[in-house]
Protein backbone atom coordinates (compact mmCIF):
# COMPACT_ATOMS: atom_id res chain seq x y z
CA UNK A 1 0.00 0.00 0.00
CA UNK A 2 1.42 3.41 -0.89
CA UNK A 3 2.66 5.78 1.82
CA UNK A 4 -0.39 7.96 1.27
CA UNK A 5 -2.69 5.20 2.48
CA UNK A 6 -0.40 3.81 5.20
CA UNK A 7 -1.97 6.02 7.90
CA UNK A 8 -5.46 4.84 6.94
CA UNK A 9 -4.37 1.19 7.02
CA UNK A 10 -2.86 1.64 10.49
CA UNK A 11 -6.02 3.27 11.74
CA UNK A 12 -8.10 0.43 10.32
CA UNK A 13 -6.12 -2.16 12.29
CA UNK A 14 -6.23 0.03 15.40
CA UNK A 15 -10.03 -0.02 15.18
CA UNK A 16 -9.90 -3.82 14.82
CA UNK A 17 -7.71 -4.21 17.93
CA UNK A 18 -9.89 -1.86 19.98
CA UNK A 19 -12.98 -3.90 19.18
CA UNK A 20 -11.27 -7.13 20.31
CA UNK A 21 -10.15 -5.57 23.62
CA UNK A 22 -13.20 -6.63 25.65
CA UNK A 23 -13.14 -10.37 24.99
CA UNK A 24 -16.17 -11.42 27.06
CA UNK A 25 -18.28 -8.85 25.26
CA UNK A 26 -17.02 -10.08 21.95
CA UNK A 27 -17.64 -13.75 22.71
CA UNK A 28 -21.18 -13.24 24.00
CA UNK A 29 -21.99 -11.11 20.96
CA UNK A 30 -20.69 -13.84 18.65
CA UNK A 31 -22.85 -16.51 20.35
CA UNK A 32 -25.91 -14.27 20.08
CA UNK A 33 -25.31 -13.73 16.36
CA UNK A 34 -25.20 -17.48 15.81
CA UNK A 35 -28.48 -17.88 17.70
CA UNK A 36 -30.17 -15.20 15.57
CA UNK A 37 -29.04 -17.07 12.42
CA UNK A 38 -30.58 -20.28 13.78
CA UNK A 39 -33.85 -18.52 14.66
CA UNK A 40 -34.17 -17.31 11.08
CA UNK A 41 -33.70 -20.84 9.83
CA UNK A 42 -36.44 -22.26 12.08
CA UNK A 43 -38.99 -19.59 11.13
CA UNK A 44 -38.54 -20.20 7.42
CA UNK A 45 -38.67 -23.95 7.95
CA UNK A 46 -42.12 -23.43 9.48
CA UNK A 47 -43.20 -21.17 6.60
CA UNK A 48 -42.22 -23.89 4.14
CA UNK A 49 -44.01 -26.67 6.07
CA UNK A 50 -46.09 -28.58 3.52
CA UNK A 51 -44.88 -26.71 0.43
CA UNK A 52 -41.95 -27.01 -1.95
CA UNK A 53 -41.46 -23.43 -3.03
CA UNK A 54 -42.31 -19.85 -2.18
CA UNK A 55 -42.24 -17.81 -5.39
CA UNK A 56 -39.04 -18.92 -7.15
CA UNK A 57 -37.38 -20.04 -3.93
CA UNK A 58 -37.10 -23.57 -2.59
CA UNK A 59 -36.48 -23.82 1.17
CA UNK A 60 -32.79 -24.45 0.62
CA UNK A 61 -32.50 -21.49 -1.75
CA UNK A 62 -34.35 -19.27 0.70
CA UNK A 63 -31.91 -20.13 3.50
CA UNK A 64 -28.91 -19.57 1.25
CA UNK A 65 -30.44 -16.32 0.07
CA UNK A 66 -31.10 -15.02 3.58
CA UNK A 67 -27.69 -15.97 4.92
CA UNK A 68 -25.75 -14.25 2.17
CA UNK A 69 -28.10 -11.25 2.10
CA UNK A 70 -27.67 -10.82 5.86
CA UNK A 71 -23.91 -11.16 5.60
CA UNK A 72 -23.67 -8.46 2.93
CA UNK A 73 -26.20 -6.29 4.77
CA UNK A 74 -24.05 -6.56 7.91
CA UNK A 75 -21.05 -5.37 5.92
CA UNK A 76 -22.89 -2.50 4.27
CA UNK A 77 -24.75 -1.24 7.31
CA UNK A 78 -22.91 1.74 8.84
CA UNK A 79 -25.66 3.12 11.09
CA UNK A 80 -23.23 3.01 14.03
CA UNK A 81 -20.96 5.40 12.15
CA UNK A 82 -23.88 7.74 11.41
CA UNK A 83 -24.60 7.99 15.16
CA UNK A 84 -20.88 8.55 15.87
CA UNK A 85 -20.73 11.35 13.32
CA UNK A 86 -23.82 12.94 14.85
CA UNK A 87 -22.21 12.85 18.30
CA UNK A 88 -18.94 14.28 16.93
CA UNK A 89 -20.77 17.19 15.34
CA UNK A 90 -23.11 17.93 18.25
CA UNK A 91 -20.49 17.56 21.00
CA UNK A 92 -17.74 19.39 19.12
CA UNK A 93 -15.47 16.35 18.94
CA UNK A 94 -15.22 16.94 15.21
CA UNK A 95 -12.78 19.81 15.87
CA UNK A 96 -9.84 17.59 16.70
CA UNK A 97 -10.60 15.31 13.74
CA UNK A 98 -10.61 18.29 11.38
CA UNK A 99 -7.22 19.45 12.64
CA UNK A 100 -5.56 16.17 11.63
CA UNK A 101 -3.64 16.10 8.32
CA UNK A 102 -5.90 13.40 6.88
CA UNK A 103 -9.13 13.25 4.94
CA UNK A 104 -11.94 12.81 7.48
CA UNK A 105 -14.16 10.75 5.19
CA UNK A 106 -11.35 8.39 4.14
CA UNK A 107 -10.21 7.94 7.74
CA UNK A 108 -13.78 7.23 8.80
CA UNK A 109 -14.21 4.70 6.01
CA UNK A 110 -11.08 2.76 6.96
CA UNK A 111 -12.00 2.85 10.65
CA UNK A 112 -15.44 1.45 9.82
CA UNK A 113 -13.88 -1.28 7.68
CA UNK A 114 -11.58 -2.14 10.60
CA UNK A 115 -14.59 -2.49 12.90
CA UNK A 116 -16.35 -4.65 10.30
CA UNK A 117 -13.30 -6.95 10.13
CA UNK A 118 -14.02 -7.97 13.74
CA UNK A 119 -17.31 -9.66 13.00
CA UNK A 120 -17.01 -10.36 9.28
CA UNK A 121 -14.94 -13.56 9.66
CA UNK A 122 -17.36 -14.87 12.31
CA UNK A 123 -20.39 -14.01 10.21
CA UNK A 124 -18.68 -15.50 7.18
CA UNK A 125 -18.22 -18.78 9.02
CA UNK A 126 -21.83 -18.71 10.19
CA UNK A 127 -23.00 -18.36 6.59
CA UNK A 128 -20.36 -20.47 4.85
CA UNK A 129 -20.95 -23.52 7.07
CA UNK A 130 -24.66 -23.70 6.14
CA UNK A 131 -23.71 -23.02 2.52
CA UNK A 132 -21.24 -25.90 2.54
CA UNK A 133 -23.69 -28.21 4.33
CA UNK A 134 -26.42 -27.29 1.88
CA UNK A 135 -24.16 -27.96 -1.08
CA UNK A 136 -23.16 -31.40 0.20
CA UNK A 137 -26.42 -32.69 1.70
CA UNK A 138 -29.18 -30.73 0.03
CA UNK A 139 -28.35 -31.50 -3.56
CA UNK A 140 -27.65 -27.83 -4.27
CA UNK A 141 -24.56 -27.02 -6.26
CA UNK A 142 -22.78 -23.73 -6.61
CA UNK A 143 -22.86 -22.89 -10.30
CA UNK A 144 -20.90 -19.69 -10.58
CA UNK A 145 -18.41 -19.01 -13.33
CA UNK A 146 -15.55 -16.47 -13.13
CA UNK A 147 -17.84 -13.73 -14.47
CA UNK A 148 -20.36 -14.36 -11.68
CA UNK A 149 -17.60 -14.27 -9.05
CA UNK A 150 -16.38 -10.95 -10.47
CA UNK A 151 -19.92 -9.57 -10.35
CA UNK A 152 -20.32 -10.79 -6.78
CA UNK A 153 -17.10 -9.14 -5.62
CA UNK A 154 -17.68 -5.92 -7.56
CA UNK A 155 -21.26 -5.45 -6.39
CA UNK A 156 -20.33 -6.39 -2.80
CA UNK A 157 -17.57 -3.76 -2.72
CA UNK A 158 -19.91 -1.27 -4.39
CA UNK A 159 -22.71 -2.11 -1.96
CA UNK A 160 -20.46 -1.57 1.07
CA UNK A 161 -19.24 1.76 -0.31
CA UNK A 162 -22.81 2.82 -1.08
CA UNK A 163 -23.87 1.92 2.46
CA UNK A 164 -21.02 4.00 3.88
CA UNK A 165 -21.77 7.03 1.70
CA UNK A 166 -25.46 6.99 2.63
CA UNK A 167 -24.57 6.68 6.32
CA UNK A 168 -22.15 9.60 5.95
CA UNK A 169 -24.92 11.70 4.44
CA UNK A 170 -27.30 10.71 7.23
CA UNK A 171 -24.73 11.66 9.88
CA UNK A 172 -24.19 15.04 8.23
CA UNK A 173 -27.80 15.98 8.87
CA UNK A 174 -26.57 16.86 12.37
CA UNK A 175 -25.03 20.01 10.86
CA UNK A 176 -28.55 21.27 10.20
CA UNK A 177 -30.85 19.49 12.66
CA UNK A 178 -30.57 19.25 16.45
CA UNK A 179 -31.39 15.56 16.71
CA UNK A 180 -31.23 13.49 13.52
CA UNK A 181 -31.05 10.16 15.39
CA UNK A 182 -34.70 9.42 14.66
CA UNK A 183 -34.10 9.85 10.94
CA UNK A 184 -31.08 7.53 11.08
CA UNK A 185 -33.14 4.91 12.90
CA UNK A 186 -35.97 5.15 10.36
CA UNK A 187 -33.47 4.88 7.52
CA UNK A 188 -32.01 1.77 9.19
CA UNK A 189 -35.43 0.11 9.42
CA UNK A 190 -36.28 1.02 5.82
CA UNK A 191 -32.96 -0.29 4.54
CA UNK A 192 -33.32 -3.56 6.47
CA UNK A 193 -36.59 -4.14 4.63
CA UNK A 194 -35.68 -2.77 1.20
CA UNK A 195 -32.25 -4.41 1.03
CA UNK A 196 -34.01 -7.76 0.95
CA UNK A 197 -32.16 -8.95 4.04
CA UNK A 198 -35.43 -9.90 5.77
CA UNK A 199 -37.35 -11.25 2.79
CA UNK A 200 -36.34 -11.48 -0.90
CA UNK A 201 -37.44 -8.53 -3.02
CA UNK A 202 -38.94 -11.03 -5.51
CA UNK A 203 -41.69 -11.71 -2.97
CA UNK A 204 -42.75 -8.03 -2.84
CA UNK A 205 -45.70 -6.87 -4.98
CA UNK A 206 -44.57 -6.15 -8.54
CA UNK A 207 -45.03 -2.36 -8.46
CA UNK A 208 -43.14 -1.93 -5.18
CA UNK A 209 -40.36 -4.21 -6.40
CA UNK A 210 -39.92 -2.23 -9.63
CA UNK A 211 -39.42 0.92 -7.55
CA UNK A 212 -36.93 -0.69 -5.13
CA UNK A 213 -34.94 -2.09 -8.05
CA UNK A 214 -34.02 1.49 -8.99
CA UNK A 215 -32.57 2.24 -5.56
CA UNK A 216 -28.97 1.57 -4.45
CA UNK A 217 -30.19 -0.34 -1.41
CA UNK A 218 -30.75 -3.51 -3.46
CA UNK A 219 -26.94 -3.80 -3.73
CA UNK A 220 -26.65 -4.26 0.04
CA UNK A 221 -27.83 -7.85 0.20
CA UNK A 222 -30.44 -8.75 -2.39
CA UNK A 223 -28.35 -8.48 -5.52
CA UNK A 224 -25.41 -10.61 -4.29
CA UNK A 225 -27.78 -13.37 -3.15
CA UNK A 226 -29.49 -13.31 -6.52
CA UNK A 227 -26.11 -13.79 -8.23
CA UNK A 228 -25.36 -16.74 -5.94
CA UNK A 229 -28.67 -18.41 -6.74
CA UNK A 230 -28.41 -17.71 -10.45
CA UNK A 231 -31.45 -15.42 -10.51
CA UNK A 232 -29.62 -12.56 -12.22
CA UNK A 233 -30.07 -12.30 -15.97
CA UNK A 234 -26.65 -11.72 -17.48
CA UNK A 235 -27.99 -9.43 -20.20
CA UNK A 236 -28.96 -7.00 -17.42
CA UNK A 237 -25.57 -7.09 -15.67
CA UNK A 238 -24.14 -4.14 -17.59
CA UNK A 239 -27.19 -2.07 -16.71
CA UNK A 240 -26.97 -3.15 -13.04
CA UNK A 241 -23.27 -2.30 -12.83
CA UNK A 242 -23.87 1.05 -14.51
CA UNK A 243 -26.69 1.80 -12.07
CA UNK A 244 -24.46 0.96 -9.10
CA UNK A 245 -21.59 3.06 -10.49
CA UNK A 246 -24.01 5.92 -11.10
CA UNK A 247 -25.30 5.80 -7.54
CA UNK A 248 -21.74 5.70 -6.11
CA UNK A 249 -20.74 8.67 -8.23
CA UNK A 250 -23.84 10.64 -7.27
CA UNK A 251 -23.45 9.86 -3.57
CA UNK A 252 -19.70 10.68 -3.59
CA UNK A 253 -20.36 14.04 -5.22
CA UNK A 254 -23.16 14.74 -2.75
CA UNK A 255 -20.99 13.82 0.25
CA UNK A 256 -18.12 16.02 -0.96
CA UNK A 257 -20.30 19.00 -1.81
CA UNK A 258 -22.41 18.86 1.34
CA UNK A 259 -19.36 18.27 3.57
CA UNK A 260 -17.69 21.44 2.22
CA UNK A 261 -20.91 23.40 2.52
CA UNK A 262 -21.53 22.15 6.05
CA UNK A 263 -18.02 23.02 7.22
CA UNK A 264 -18.50 26.63 6.12
CA UNK A 265 -21.39 26.95 8.57
CA UNK A 266 -19.97 24.70 11.30
CA UNK A 267 -19.18 26.59 14.50
CA UNK A 268 -17.81 24.59 17.40
CA UNK A 269 -17.25 25.64 20.95
CA UNK A 270 -14.82 23.54 22.89
CA UNK A 271 -14.61 19.90 21.89
Amino acid sequence: MSGKYEKYRKNMFLALKTAYMYRENFLISVVMRFIVVLLTLYLWKAVYAGRDALGDYSFLEMILYLFLANFIYGLGNFDGFSYELVDSILQGKLNSALLRPVSYSRMAFFECVGQKLVYAPIDFLAYVIPLGAAAVYGGWRLRMGPAAWCMLLLTSAGGVLTGFLISFLMGMIAFYVENPRVLIFIKGELFALLSGSLIPLDLFPQGVRAFIEMLPVKYIGYYQSSILLGHVRWEECVYDLALLAGWILLLTLLVRRLWRLALTKYIANGG
Binding site: V47, A49, E189
Partner: peptide, 28 residues
Protein backbone atom coordinates in the same frame (compact mmCIF):
# COMPACT_ATOMS: atom_id res chain seq x y z
CA UNK B 1 -40.60 12.47 16.30
CA UNK B 2 -40.73 9.52 18.67
CA UNK B 3 -43.92 8.45 16.92
CA UNK B 4 -42.36 7.83 13.46
CA UNK B 5 -39.37 6.34 15.28
CA UNK B 6 -41.48 3.58 16.82
CA UNK B 7 -43.84 3.42 13.86
CA UNK B 8 -41.03 2.53 11.46
CA UNK B 9 -39.95 -0.46 13.55
CA UNK B 10 -43.52 -1.68 14.05
CA UNK B 11 -44.44 -1.26 10.40
CA UNK B 12 -41.34 -3.07 9.20
CA UNK B 13 -42.29 -6.16 11.21
CA UNK B 14 -45.93 -6.04 10.10
CA UNK B 15 -44.91 -5.66 6.43
CA UNK B 16 -42.64 -8.73 6.69
CA UNK B 17 -45.50 -10.77 8.16
CA UNK B 18 -47.90 -9.66 5.42
CA UNK B 19 -45.32 -10.48 2.74
CA UNK B 20 -44.83 -13.97 4.17
CA UNK B 21 -48.60 -14.54 4.33
CA UNK B 22 -49.00 -13.53 0.67
CA UNK B 23 -47.79 -17.04 -0.09
CA UNK B 24 -49.43 -19.01 2.70
CA UNK B 25 -52.61 -18.90 4.82
CA UNK B 26 -51.02 -20.34 7.94
CA UNK B 27 -47.60 -20.72 9.45
CA UNK B 28 -48.10 -23.99 11.33
Amino acid sequence: LQLPFHLSWTLKEVVVIFLMYRYTDRIL
